[in-house]
Computed example of a mutant assay.
Amino acid sequence: MLVVEDDRLVRSYVLTQIESLGYTTLSANNGSEALAVLDSSAPIDLLFTDVIMPGAMNGRELATEAQKRRPGLRVLFTSGYTENAIDQDGKLEQGILFLGKPYSRAQLARMLQVALREGERQLARQEPVG
């Protein structure tokens, strides 16, 4: 799992929480660092990224580029600014997985499971039957 969070303290806390749930993590401070990790051979099944990040690339742009490089990569967004994660109609876009900050360890665990389970369902739909 690749965690992208620009705030060092938040990133450290999130990594600790995710690792305590039994997941292996990699981390990046921003979009360009995340793309460098994605370009490596490291196994990554989920991108967990903040929506709002400083620099040239926000979380949505990162997710788009990440999925071009790794088709089928699951994405879970997070933000403390929920209005920036919502489209113009005030609704989350179809198929977007989002976890608002602050969140509990239990909420994090549940959303990670949902994100990974969704990815398994997508793979199952893509596999040819018999």
Rank of each mutant, 00 (worst) to 15 (best):
I86N: 06
L76E: 08
S20V: 05
L2V: 05
L21W: 11
A34I: 04
I18C: 06
L15D: 00
M1N: 00
Q122S: 10
R8Y: 00
S79H: 01
E93K: 14
A36T: 15
I96A: 00
A28I: 04
L92Q: 14
E118T: 13
K68T: 13
S32V: 13
Q17F: 00
A34H: 03
Q94G: 07
A106V: 11
I86K: 10
G80I: 02
N29D: 14
K101E: 12
P102T: 06
A42N: 14
R110T: 13
P102L: 06
K68C: 06
T82I: 13
R8C: 01
V37L: 03
S20N: 12
L112E: 11
Y103K: 13
G72W: 01
I86R: 15
M53S: 04
L116G: 11
V3S: 04
E93S: 14
A42V: 12
S79D: 07
R74I: 00
D87Y: 07
R121T: 10
Q94K: 12
N84R: 15
M111F: 01
M111K: 10
I96L: 03
V114C: 07
D50M: 01
A115E: 10
P54A: 00
E33A: 12
G31E: 11
G100K: 15
D89P: 03
A66S: 08
P102N: 09
S32N: 12
V75H: 03
L99Q: 13
L76S: 02
V37Y: 01
Y23W: 12
V4H: 08
N30R: 09
F98C: 01
L26Y: 10
R70W: 05
L46G: 09
R117H: 14
A85K: 05
L76C: 11
Y23H: 15
T24H: 13
R8I: 04
A109W: 08
R8P: 09
G59A: 07
L2N: 01
Q17D: 14
R11D: 09
N29Y: 07
